Computed example of a mutant assay.
Amino acid sequence: MNFRGRWVLITGASSGLGLEMARLLAKEHGAHIIAVARREDRLTALKTELESAHGVQVLPLSADLTKPGDAARVFETATSGRSVDGVILNAGITYFGHALDQPPESFDAMLATNITSVVRMSQLFGAHFAKREGGGALMLVASMAGFSPLPYQAAYAATKSFVISYGRSLAYELRKAGVSITVFAPGGIATEMLSLSGLDRKFKAGDLGIMSAEACARIAVDAFVRRRELAIPGILNRFLATMFKVLPQGFLVGRSAAMYEGGLPKEPPAT
């Protein structure tokens, strides 16, 4: 799909994978960017950067996708007075720790961001694309965590499993309308999420299996442009995705748990 001179909307565009995809689409594909995130100052900085460096247009759109109604507001604003041809639903949050310790407000925010907003925006933009000639392209950013149960990221893995199943089902339903759905399932990425979640206690940038945001973004954008249904970046991740299908699940869950246990917060000393 050719995005030169066309508008692409990206959620979670203020940092990490979303930021690097916005930069790449502007620089190498000449796309105009609708950048969606909560932090307005970062979106304004991104607008200045991309417009001055690449001569594209950038619409900063501050939104909190945990709030009811913000997904619909983003759609209405994005499609008002312009034609949107691509949408990348990248915003996501995680929780690292014992499932029983996750606060209710943390789970509610995760559910709203990782699932509810993804479904609502997929419906809105999917219907928008299906009604017009030429269709459009949607990308749903999932995770390797969605291919198998993941102790200590239990709720996060479950949300990403939903995204993989939902996205691939939607791809079939919209195929005849000329609308492509790409599910992108990366493994670990060196982004803000790694440190904010506490996962950096166990995983560091440069570790085996931890990909830079720039390298991951390049693979994601290539899959988006080529309108691939499922993309898993990295040889190791693709190998693991295959192993998830053939190895006993109990063995995989146990190995995953052992890998994550070393990064759990230490218990406070007894007093």
Rank of each mutant, 00 (worst) to 15 (best):
L174R: 03
S180F: 06
Q123C: 04
Y152A: 04
S80V: 05
P248M: 14
A130V: 15
K27M: 01
A72Y: 00
F96G: 01
L138M: 14
F147P: 02
R42Q: 09
T11F: 02
L236R: 11
R175N: 10
E51V: 05
R39F: 10
Y166I: 10
H29Q: 09
R201A: 10
V253R: 11
G198S: 04
F3E: 02
K245T: 14
G86A: 10
I235F: 11
I33R: 05
M259G: 09
G81K: 01
V36N: 01
P268W: 04
A217Q: 08
S15T: 15
L61P: 04
G198N: 03
S117L: 01
S148T: 15
E267K: 15
H54I: 11
K266D: 05
W7Q: 10
E173M: 10
L264K: 04
A130K: 07
V87G: 07
A137N: 14
R38Y: 03
R82N: 07
L199P: 05
Y166E: 09
S52C: 00
A223E: 11
A213C: 14
F162P: 08
L230W: 13
F244H: 13
A91C: 09
M193G: 09
S83M: 13
E49Q: 14
A213H: 11
L230T: 11
G187L: 13
S161W: 02
A157S: 15
A112T: 08
G250W: 00
